[in-house]
């Protein structure tokens, strides 16, 4: 049996690595750190919320002819069906990927074409972040109100209060993600598996396809790539789509483990940047390593420290800030920029 701390670390590290991978991907092609990256994750989280809430509601609708006891049993024993996992992963990829492309096409590209500096573009991403935050809140409020009125009308129809809670904020789907056989969460399998699948896919796309080679060329030198006939715009759009899609899929796993609300992006953004900066913000594989190091520091390492010293775990948010500060001062190019052989020579 895996310890709860290890389970938590695996899920958190996988999600964080995917989110920092997304950030590094867009930074590589656009040279702009995207502050809306965490909101992409929140968007993915609410795709999951929508699909799981609808799935739970459908359970009730299918039990309308049953007695209250059977209805209650069905509500409390609900687990997320396997196809729902697939649906929210795919839908998150598509919706959030499209959102990222819109951000690039409607905000960053026009600004870039007008000569906007990297700082101006970066600030524009904060604007997009705020816009996304508002849109998500509006959507969540209206969808939540619709779902609650559905439950209410079903309760009226049946003549008793159906004990189905569909909270839109401060909720977790932990209870619905458990495997009855082992008591373990499915997220412990899905999250690392998703990371591996995405890594292999990216590796194959970047190294084995013409499109991937073109994308790498754009990352290395966009001007020269354009001269030799690479469609730089298409490469940019594709990079933003993949980045958004990956972040959306990572975000869609958040409600399975964490207490989720529309502002969870604020706590995530610091860890995402810390992971990216630690790995080397322009390095895709470095960001994965960064995600794991920051994730382990915030979970397992913090657990040991609190047990050894009695320090309050409430200091957790400080860890990514410390990592980020140290890296920016000592290794501004992150792990990817360290010449380990040179460092070894110096230490000798």
């Amino acid at each position: 049996m895996l310890s709860p701390q290890l389970v938590n670390a695996i899920i958190y590290c996988s999600i964080l690595s995917l989110l920092s991978l997304g950030l590094s991907l867009t930074y590589s092609v656009t040279k702009v750190p995207n502050f809306a990256q965490a909101s992409f994750a929140v968007l993915g989280a609410y795709v999951t919320w929508t699909l799981v809430s609808l799935s739970r509601l459908s359970v009730v609708e299918n039990m309308l002819s049953s007695n209250p006891q059977a209805m209650n049993a069905a509500i409390y024993s609900y687990t997320i069906p396997p196809q729902t996992y697939l649906e929210f992963l795919i839908l998150s990829f598509l919706i959030v990927g499209a959102t990222a492309v819109l951000q690039y096409l409607m905000v960053l590209r026009p600004l870039k074409n007008r000569g906007g500096s990297p700082t101006a573009l970066m600030i524009a991403t904060i604007g997009v972040d705020m816009l996304l935050f508002s849109i998500i809140n509006i959507y969540v409020d209206s969808m939540s109100s619709h779902l609650l009125s559905e439950v209410s009308s079903l309760s009226e129809r049946l003549g008793y209060s159906i004990p189905l809670r569909l909270d839109a904020r401060d909720f977790t789907f932990y209870s619905y993600d458990l495997m009855s056989s082992s008591g373990l969460q499915r997220a412990i399998i899905i999250s690392p598996l998703l990371l591996i699948v995405i890594l292999i896919s990216l590796e194959m796309i970047l190294k084995k396809t013409k499109f991937g080679i073109a994308l790498r060329a754009v990352v290395e030198n966009p001007n020269l790539s354009g001269v030799i006939g690479v469609n730089v715009e298409l490469a940019n759009i594709a990079a933003w789509f993949i980045s958004g899609g990956v972040s959306g899929m990572a975000g869609s796993l958040i409600p399975l483990k964490f207490y989720t609300n529309t502002s969870i992006g604020i706590t995530l953004i610091v860890s995402i940047f810390a992971s990216s900066i630690l790995g080397g913000i322009a390095s895709l594989y470095g960001s994965i390593a960064g995600g794991f190091i920051v994730g382990v520091s915030e979970t397992i390492f913090l657990g040991y420290i609190t047990q050894l010293t009695g320090l309050s775990p409430a200091y957790r948010p400080v860890i990514p800030l410390i990592i980020m500060t140290i890296m920016l001062i000592i290794f501004p190019k992150g792990l990817a920029g360290i010449d380990f052989s040179n460092l070894r020579r110096r230490l000798k």
Partner: peptide
């Protein structure tokens, strides 16, 4: 026992400390 922050979305470390 642990005094937890009101802003966290995950209590693994706090629960682990309490369990210990």
């Amino acid at each position: 026992g642990p005094r937890y922050s009101v802003q966290v979305s995950d209590y693994t470390s706090e629960v682990n400390q309490l369990a210990s």
